[in-house]
Write a protein that binds this DNA or RNA. Sequence first.
DNA 1: CAACTTATCAAGAGTTCTATTGAATAGCGA
DNA 2: TCGCTATTCAATAGAACTCTTGATAAGTTG
Lengths: 207, 207
Amino acid sequence: MFEAIALMGKAFSSPRRLEFLDLLAQAPRTVEELARESGQSVANASQHLQALHAAGMAARTREGTRVRYALAGEEALRLWLALRDASAARLAEVQRAAHDYLGEDVETVGREELLARLASGEAVLVDVRPEEEFAAGHIEGARSIPIAELERRLGELPDDREIVAYCRGPFCAYAHEAVRRLQESGREARRLEDGWPEWRLAGQPAQ
Amino acid sequence: MFEAIALMGKAFSSPRRLEFLDLLAQAPRTVEELARESGQSVANASQHLQALHAAGMAARTREGTRVRYALAGEEALRLWLALRDASAARLAEVQRAAHDYLGEDVETVGREELLARLASGEAVLVDVRPEEEFAAGHIEGARSIPIAELERRLGELPDDREIVAYCRGPFCAYAHEAVRRLQESGREARRLEDGWPEWRLAGQPAQ
DNA sequence: CAACTTATCAAGAGTTCTATTGAATAGCGA
DNA sequence: TCGCTATTCAATAGAACTCTTGATAAGTTG
């Protein structure tokens, strides 16, 4: 029994596999994409992805000559987020790594407040993740400006309303970075406290 | 970052450690007790427990010459139960192991129905876990009859009311076993669909 | 069908994990 | 202090895991 459960537990014991889970939480991807985005060989990525599949954490579908992996349902997403949050709450190593990686804290907005400010037109919501992730699903009413293009496309954003940026989640640096740049441009800006996976899991309006 | 999270993830990759989590979900215990109940050497148990501690899943307190380990807060319990349930939902191996271990399914009662029937006096609730686990915490209104003593103490139970048995959780065989024996004795009996940890986590009345 | 792309397989070197053994340490009580 | 108990430490052999390399399989396109 415990041996069988450990089959799933092993999915969480390798940083590489956790990185895949994090990527898959945003959008399904092919093996080659996952390998490229995580900077490892295709063969190695394939092995880890098969391990995730065997652990019941990833689903896979064949698409012609490629194979697309996705998280295996909401349950899998919930489990990954629970592990991530629990480790952030209890392990000093994770806190330290997060702080080093994210830099100075940036002011946040909660879900309710964001919804209210969007409804009243006081705020504009920007998704700063890569375009493909936006395409795979995003918060209702958000517009896509990937962080890499933000500088160049600053003109598209109003400077008389607050900008709220969001990205992959609370441990993703994109939104932090975006808020800093927006503030440097003289705009009022905050980041959404969560990212897209948390929003979706909470059953909030999405597209 | 992912490396740091994997420190916690590794806690779930060994059947031995999962068994400890399962035991600790019932009640805190000393190293020696945990080693005995899981049938392994003390030195080995100590190593695994230290790993759980380093992973932020177990807390430890010194008590004179012994060391008592406990789950590190509700968060740890929630994570363990989430992993267990997710693996039971998604891995055929776990389902098979559970069925082999638990035997024929037994009729269950839900929390709400149990509370109603206890309030109206239509049912009697029995905790069939070992006595020490009962002592460390149990459902309000339950009486303790460890499964090992059930046969001998059958006379203590009424035969004109339904008996509801519960134990460590849905994958613990004690309650199944108890219901079968109670039914053989001519009593009406069902098992609570969850066990003590789930009950406590749900914030239901406890002692 | 041949050439090509994408993913998986197979084998092996190096690393990490696990359980065992025996020794060492910490706290207690005489 | 000494002897005792409970736990941890240290060393080690064997098992499992990880990544790399090169070959193979599946599917598409010309």
